[in-house]
Simulated scan of single mutants.
Amino acid sequence: MSDAGKAPEGAEIAAEESFFSVNVDILDCVDKAPCDLYRRNASGQYVLLASRSSTLDRDALKRLQFFGIGQLFVQGQDSGCFSRILRTRLDEIVKNPHIEASVKARVVQASCRDAMRRAFDDPRGPFIRQACDMIVPTVDLIVQSDQATRYLIQLTSFDHATYVHSTNVGIFAVALARLFFGLDRAHDMHNLGMGFFLHDLGKCRIPIEILNKPGPLTEQERQVVNCHVEEGFRILEENGIITDEARTITLEHHEKDNGKGYPRGKMGADIHPYARICRIADIYEALTAERPYHRRRSTFDALRIMKEQEVADVDKALFAHFLQLFAG
């Protein structure tokens, strides 16, 4: 790759400087490096791979992926610039009818997941806003293309990382809302997307040893986990990133019709449809994810459990629409 820029290619920067990682897949949507890009060598040093505005070498990127290097790195000071350029390019890709749906889905999903990871790792306003920026083209792609939506659902990866869970739930919930509400403009899909993707942001304030505990939680631990609902709302409110949709989804997605949910113990019709959509996506993702306390279920087994035990009795219409996401 070109060595034009402020530092020669191969120059090393001390590992303790602030860097954040980006998925190599994201770079498929840009021709030139949005900012200086680095790889990390075996000793933990960050080595300049491509200088800002240099032409990206596709073959070199493919070689990195071939050798299992799926992440590159950007200096923290460049995060805003990287996010702005990436968002503009993603918007162009989503609107371009000549780009295959599978390519759109792969790039959009990787970009959104990376931004979600940064927001969960450091839930300050700039990083949450960057996540919101990446949520918009993801929502647009789901709204515009059923084929791309199917690819997005196939691309969901299941592990116990909260940001992965939240990204998956966001994709499932936006897709379900799109099916259930159609194109009714009374429902702002961008605001809904922000609420769905960030519904569990409060878990970044829950001790990791409780979130990843392999066995049953104690009652005290359960109460700590339950606090993530109001903590998530508090984070969004503190950073001035709150909408009516996000408030409703964040605060109500664990409410149950029998009144045994939390945090308010709401019942029946008092639970908003937006929260119900998020709950269905949340339950499915939890059942199909690999967790410290259970093995992941197949799609068939997860949907069977949901039908027999969880949601089909009270949310029949929503569940019927949810099943359509896995048809064909």
Results as ranks from 00 to 15, higher is better:
296 R>S: 14
138 T>N: 11
180 F>D: 03
45 Q>A: 12
34 P>R: 00
245 E>G: 00
260 K>E: 15
320 A>L: 13
133 D>G: 10
99 I>W: 07
256 K>N: 11
243 T>H: 06
220 Q>V: 14
246 A>S: 15
162 T>G: 00
110 A>K: 06
62 K>R: 13
177 A>H: 03
222 R>E: 15
96 N>D: 15
255 E>A: 02
324 Q>M: 10
238 E>L: 03
41 N>A: 04
95 K>P: 08
245 E>I: 01
109 Q>E: 09
49 L>S: 06
140 D>L: 12
299 T>C: 11
34 P>I: 05
102 S>E: 13
177 A>V: 03
296 R>A: 14
91 D>G: 10
211 L>S: 06
326 F>G: 00
78 D>L: 01
25 D>V: 11
289 A>G: 07
11 A>L: 14
149 T>C: 08
199 H>S: 06
224 V>E: 10
20 F>Y: 12
178 R>T: 14
310 E>N: 09
205 R>D: 12
276 R>S: 03
216 P>E: 12
178 R>F: 03
29 C>H: 00
317 A>R: 04
92 E>I: 05
26 I>M: 12
183 L>A: 12
13 I>L: 14
175 A>P: 08
210 I>R: 05
174 V>G: 01
147 Q>S: 15
167 T>M: 01
274 Y>V: 03
308 E>F: 03
287 L>H: 04
197 F>E: 01
9 E>N: 09
307 K>F: 09
301 D>G: 00
305 I>N: 10
53 S>C: 12
61 L>F: 13
54 S>E: 14
82 F>W: 02
287 L>V: 03
63 R>G: 10
61 L>A: 11
125 G>S: 09
25 D>C: 00
256 K>G: 04
159 D>E: 12
305 I>W: 12
173 A>H: 01
164 V>Q: 10
278 C>D: 07
264 R>L: 10
106 R>F: 08
251 L>S: 04
288 T>I: 14
184 D>Y: 10
202 G>V: 03
74 V>C: 04
97 P>F: 00
171 I>F: 04
277 I>M: 05
241 I>F: 09
39 R>F: 04
67 F>W: 14
247 R>V: 03
14 A>Q: 08
292 P>D: 10
78 D>C: 02
164 V>P: 05
240 G>A: 03
69 I>E: 15
310 E>K: 09
278 C>F: 02
129 R>H: 12
322 F>N: 04
